[in-house]
């Protein structure tokens, strides 16, 4: 009788502990979206937000912010990729357009994905893009070239101490990944 009570309470406790284990396993996965949300709010990792709408808000003509454009090519991406403007001075609130150039130097069709990153990371919260090639993937045939526009505005609430914003794009070759996911959906 007493043994049975002991066994039951053991099983109950084991059950609870296993629930913690399962919970923590999923917590690890939950950390990914949690971190993304956290970064969206604080801008800590310099990731920019998705597509923004231009609110035609006030333009702060008194302030000038330098915006620099960097391009990087990740290992194994046979494209030429550059910004046609290295840096511009803008007033917070005004809508600006810059152009990027890409050319597939290889003999194959390649799909590219640009990943934006802003420094200082905090600045990512105030750099809003209304149109950007980084929202989509680009497929270029062998030797094909493309000019890609990017429209953005700086939120006038940008903290005073930020005078330079750097927007960097790193271009990745995602041809294989695209192929794999297409294969899966079939």
């Amino acid at each position: 009788m007493k043994e049975q009570v002991k066994k039951d309470s053991n099983q109950q406790l084991v059950g609870k502990l296993l629930a913690i284990v399962a919970g923590m396993f999923f917590f690890a996965f939950a950390l990914i979206p949690l971190y993304d949300v956290f970064c969206d709010i604080t801008g800590i990792n310099g990731k920019t937000k998705g597509k923004a709408l231009y609110p035609a808000s006030r333009i702060d003509l008194k302030r000038e912010v330098t915006v620099e454009f960097l391009t990087n090519i990740n290992r194994g991406m046979p494209w030429e990729f550059k910004s046609m403007t290295t840096s511009i001075k803008v007033h917070p609130g005004e809508l600006n357009e810059v152009k990027f150039y890409a050319r597939n130097r290889s003999q194959k069709d390649i799909v590219g994905q640009s990943i934006p990153s802003v420094s200082p990371g905090e600045g990512a919260l105030y750099l809003n893009k209304t149109e950007c090639f980084c929202f989509d993937q680009q497929r270029l045939a062998a030797g094909e070239e493309i000019e890609m526009p990017m429209k953005f505005y700086i939120d006038p609430d940008l903290p005073e101490d930020i005078t330079i914003l750097t927007l960097s794009y790193q271009l990745f070759n995602v041809t294989e990944a695209v192929k794999a996911s297409v294969g899966e959906t079939r």
Binding site: N74, R75, G76, M77, P78, S106, E176
Partner: peptide, 21 residues
């Protein structure tokens, strides 16, 4: 030859082979 040039110039994604172009 063409493929040989391609891999040396452009590298190979996901491996240690860099783009020497």
């Amino acid at each position: 030859v063409r493929e040989h040039i391609e891999i040396v110039v452009n590298g190979k994604a996901g491996t240690g082979m860099q783009a020497f172009g």
